[in-house]
Amino acid sequence: MLTKHAKLMEFFSIAGEITGRKKLQKMIYILKKCRLPFEEKFEYHFYGPYSEELTLRVEELCNLGFLEELKEEKSSYFQYHYSITGDGEAFLQQFASHLPGLEEKVNLLNEQSSRFLELVATIMYFDELPKSEVAEKIHKVKSKQNYSEEEIEQAWDFIHLLAGKASN
């Protein structure tokens, strides 16, 4: 039952707390690109890969009482915090899918900023382009974020690090 929800619950159980919807979106997208079997469909939106399906599924998990959502008012926007509840843990005990390799990657991703994960996710989104063209594309589609060459290089290193962990 609810196998797609169960995979997300496993993610939240490992992560402890996720701060920010943008961060959540990018983390799941990156994990999916690392061949972890998340099934949410992503499309490119103004701020990089985004999944409406993921947004609604998380809303469902909150409405079911499996996740707790805390809303924090910032100067010009709201920030959301997510953590698993007791009912969520109980659900997971019955329906966990035990995704191998998930824990290490989730911990690694959760340490990064949402700005950096946005860059990593966007580079991964353009994986059909030759590496030499990716930086140019990033500057075009994300001109407002003003990513430096150094940040782009760090993102590539991070992607290689994730790929190394995938093959371990």
């Binding site: 039952m1 920010g20 919807r21 103004f46 399906e53 609604l56 926007y77």
Partner: peptide, 22 residues
């Protein structure tokens, strides 16, 4: 079969969420 609203390909209007969706 349990079918959930998130299994459907439609989206509600969502206000701005930390620069996530315009």
């Amino acid at each position: 079969v349990v079918d959930s609203s998130s299994d459907l390909p439609y989206d509600f209007y969502r206000p701005g969420e930390e620069e996530e969706r315009l």
